[in-house]
């Protein structure tokens, strides 16, 4: 069996993810009022971005894969934007 070592970027990504998990749990207990939700989701997005870029190897992929990966998110954005628009502007 030849020596195989986990590639550095993967290890770094894993450590960063665990650190971000700790950070987000900690910050959840700090009263920031409405910003708690913003912080939680922002850190969630950051974690998702790390997983996508490093684990899912998006950083090595071309424009086409980017578009494919982004399409789902873009349409999710449409769903949330127009869906919530109604509920946020009810009188």
């Amino acid at each position: 069996m030849t020596a195989w070592r986990p590639p550095l970027p993967l290890v770094a990504a894993w450590l960063a993810l665990i650190a971000l998990l700790g950070l987000t749990v900690m910050l959840a207990y700090v009263p920031l009022h409405m910003f708690n939700a913003v912080v939680a989701l922002a850190i969630g997005c950051l974690k998702a971005a790390i997983v996508a870029a490093v684990f899912m190897e998006l950083r090595h992929r071309g424009r086409r894969t980017f578009i494919f990966a982004g399409a789902g998110l873009f349409w999710l954005g449409i769903l949330l934007w127009l869906g919530l628009m109604d509920f946020l502007t009810r009188t």
Partner: peptide
């Protein structure tokens, strides 16, 4: 298969933020 597994992970990242974190500071 790995792409799928990572995706399931990403879903959980958001579910965690939406389910467990709100309301902890109040």
């Amino acid at each position: 298969g790995a792409l799928y597994w990572h995706f399931v992970d990403v879903v959980w990242i958001f579910l965690f933020a939406l389910i467990y974190l709100p309301g902890r500071s109040s």
